[in-house]
């Protein structure tokens, strides 16, 4: 155990996060990352604008996109200066929030019970496994028939994929718990409900948060699918409309925005996980260095 890891193991919450950020900046990682991004942008620029390679010639170029993105008076109507841009982000985020919240609130308990009770598992799991592989796009018609308006079908579609990811991972989390923990709890006098609360729930927590990571990722996935089909605002809608209106730079603006917001939301989920599982953070911090 070296000094740095010992330090890390003493810290909690925010201090640990700050410590991690500062070590991150001292490592070559952020600079490699910048280099990677720069490399991609250069390739884009060269292929489209300088060399005008076949298949790339019709694509929106780097300078065109950047000019549009940061223009106070964008040609196609969407840039960081237009309120519509934030409206689209806001609406997409709101749908994600609803869907992710619902998926978590329903998926985690369902997963816990699926892992905990053999009878319940046998009753529900086969059904669950039949529904799970159905692609989100296949749900679109039913979603539109079932729910009125344009908002609920999109939220429903976004919810579905997240729900399956969360439930499945939570269930695996419960099944992964070593039997010695439940035996120890029973031996020490815990009843069934106490064992569930003190052993099953915290024991499944690492898997639950892995599930939530996947869940937030697939939420964005299916959100865009939903917004492209039925929806009046949102980033998926932006991309789809830009395509039909042949305003290509806006497509790229939508894609970049999706990438960045998606990255931020999954970082938030990871941070929430670290915050709730101090024991886990320390376990990993000790193993790290």
């Amino acid at each position: 155990m070296n000094n740095a890891s010992l330090q890390a193991s003493e810290m909690t919450g925010m201090a640990l996060t700050m410590y991690r950020i500062s070590t991150w900046f001292k490592s070559p990682k952020p600079y490699l990352m910048l280099f990677g991004v720069g490399f991609l942008l250069t390739i884009w620029y060269l292929f489209v604008e300088v060399w005008q390679l076949p298949r790339f010639e019709d694509m929106p170029g780097l300078t065109e996109v950047v000019t549009e993105y940061f223009s106070p008076d964008p040609i196609y109507g969407l840039s960081v200066y237009t309120p519509e841009y934030y409206q689209h982000i806001g609406i997409s985020l709101r749908r994600i929030a609803y869907a992710f919240f619902l998926a978590t609130v329903l998926g985690v308990p369902l997963g816990l019970f699926l892992g905990w009770s053999k009878k319940f598992h046998e009753f529900i799991f086969p059904l669950f496994e039949v529904l799970r592989p159905i692609p989100i796009l296949a749900w679109v018609p039913l979603a539109i028939i079932m729910f009125s308006g344009s908002e609920t079908p999109v939220i429903f579609l976004t919810f579905l994929a997240s729900f399956f990811a969360t439930t499945l991972n939570t269930m695996l989390g419960v099944q992964s718990i070593d039997e010695s923990y439940t035996r120890a709890a029973r031996c020490l006098g815990a009843n069934g409900w106490q064992t569930f609360r003190h052993v099953i729930v915290p024991g499944a927590m690492p898997y639950i948060f892995t599930g939530l990571q996947i869940s937030i990722g697939v939420a964005w996935f299916s959100l865009v699918a939903g917004e492209m089909v039925s929806g009046q605002f949102g980033l998926g809608y932006v991309i789809n409309t830009a395509y039909t209106m042949v305003t290509y730079p806006t497509i790229v603006i939508g894609m970049i925005t999706l990438g960045v917001t998606g990255f931020i939301t999954s970082t938030m989920v990871r941070m929430a996980g670290d915050f709730m599982m101090q024991w886990r953070v320390r376990e990993l911090a000790l193993g790290d260095n």
């Binding site: 070593d178 010695s180 035996r183 006098g189 052993v199 915290p202 024991g203």
Partner: peptide, 16 residues
């Protein structure tokens, strides 16, 4: 029962 406590082979301290 808590009158017979068992220490198992593998550590069963709750990691959390």
């Amino acid at each position: 029962g808590k009158d017979r406590l068992v220490l198992f082979q593998e550590s069963a301290l709750f990691p959390w």
